[in-house]
Structure formats: C-alpha cells, structure tokens
Computed example of a mutant assay.
Amino acid sequence: MDSYYDSGYLAVVFGIVIFSVIIGLAGYVLGSLFLMKIFDKAGVEGKWRAWVPVYNAMIFFKLGDLSPWLVLYGIAGAALLSWIGIGYAFSLALGVFSAIAAWRIGLKLQKDAVWVVLYVFLSIVWLGINAFDKSRWNPNIQPASWASNGFLGDRTVWNGVPVQPAAAAPQPGYGAPQGYAPPAQPGYAPPAQPGYAPPAGP
C-alpha cells in the first residue's frame, strides 16, 4: 500500500516538474522574441543577442543607461552569498536595477514613467507591448544623471550595440532660479555657443 502512495506522489512531483519546465521554456522563448523586437527598434545589430541568456539582460541594462556589468554582479552576489542568507539582497537589487532600466527604455519608446509599474508586475506584458506597438526609439531622451559617471554609469562599448548618450557636463549657470535674467549691460552680447551660428541679418 505504501508503494502505491509513493508512486502517486512521485507522479505528481514529476508532473509539476515537467509543467514548470514547459512554462519556463515558453516564457524564455516569448521573452527573447519580445527582446529581439525591442533591440531591433533600438538599433542593436544581430537578432541572436536577444536569445543568449544573461547577455540579453546585459544589453537591456545598457539600453536603459545602466552598466551591463551590474547583471553579472547581481547574479554572482546572489549565488555566492546565498549560503549565508544575504544573497536575496543582490537579487532584490537586480530587480530594482531592472525596473530602472525598463523605465529608461520606456522613455525612449515614448512611454510615460508610470508604465514601469506594468513591468514590475507583468514584465512579459510590458515587453510584448513595447515590442509590437508602433512606438519608435528616441535616443535623444535626456540622459540619466548617473549615465556619465559613478558605479551605475555605462561606459561599455560593444560592436553592434548603440552607445547611449551620456549625461552632459553641467553648463555655467545651471541651477539658476527659474525666471531669473541677469541685468542687461550696454554693449554686451552673450558668448556664442559652440556649433551655433546666429541667423544672418536682413
């Protein structure tokens, strides 16, 4: 009688494992297909990049103005420190960075910042919408404040992956109160900006 229950239990466990593998493979294929379309919109060369595990997440981070190496740091930290019980902190950090990358990618695909909520709760739906809607990639979105320096900034250059614009250095007078205009001085003309040519007079 015990062997009957043991075999039934094993059959249920085996069924759950097979079902989980099928769902995992379907999610991987669907996610890679959606990433392939998003990468295509962003100008990434080579459709194969979306199908390579971990590397596709690194490109996703790069397009989202984050260092792609954060993916490896997060995975390594979660794996190496899980035995002392703090690996979950790296997994959580990786999830937060992924949401930040999705927010930046969403901005470049003409989505409002609130769309990142959909990514947090149903990332596959967010990927599908951005992959197949009519939005176009806009690389001229104001760069993130961390994009040019610091631990989060992306300074990696890969062939076939467009370089995202870095944050510009602050210009003189940045942060001046709104509506402030310096007092006019007779005979004073502001210095010409590099690359700017004033229109020709009549």
Rank of each mutant, 00 (worst) to 15 (best):
L30F: 12
Y174L: 08
A99E: 03
A144I: 12
I100Q: 00
G8K: 07
V21D: 02
L118S: 09
W103Q: 13
F90K: 08
V120Y: 09
F60D: 08
L33F: 07
R155C: 06
P202G: 13
W83D: 04
L127H: 13
G24E: 02
V21F: 10
L107T: 06
Y28D: 10
A176K: 05
G27D: 11
G179C: 03
L30N: 07
Y28W: 14
Q110I: 00
W48D: 14
A78P: 00
G64F: 04
E45W: 00
T156M: 12
W126D: 01
Y4V: 14
F19I: 12
L118N: 05
V163H: 01
A184W: 01
I141M: 12
P165N: 01
L152Y: 01
V114A: 14
F132T: 14
Y4Q: 14
Y55N: 01
L10N: 06
G8C: 02
A101V: 12
P177F: 04
A42V: 09
S98Q: 05
L81W: 07
W146Q: 04
A79I: 07
A147D: 15
S98E: 03
N130P: 04
F121E: 00
W126N: 05
F90I: 11
V52L: 02
L35C: 09
A57H: 06
A76V: 11
A11Y: 04
K111Q: 15
Y188E: 04
Y9F: 15
F61L: 11
Y180D: 04
V17M: 15
K111G: 06
Q178D: 12
L122V: 12
L63I: 08
S67W: 09
W158Y: 05
Q164A: 15
A113E: 09
G8F: 03
G195W: 13
F39D: 09
G64T: 08
L70Y: 02
W69M: 05
W51M: 10
Y180M: 08
W83M: 07
G43C: 03
W51P: 11
S98P: 00
A102E: 11
L10S: 09
Q193L: 14
P53L: 08
A113C: 03
P202R: 13
N140W: 01
I18Y: 04
F121G: 02
W69E: 02
P177Y: 04
V114L: 10
R49K: 06
F39R: 09
P186D: 00
W115R: 05
V163T: 11
D6E: 12
S148G: 13
F34T: 08
Y5A: 13
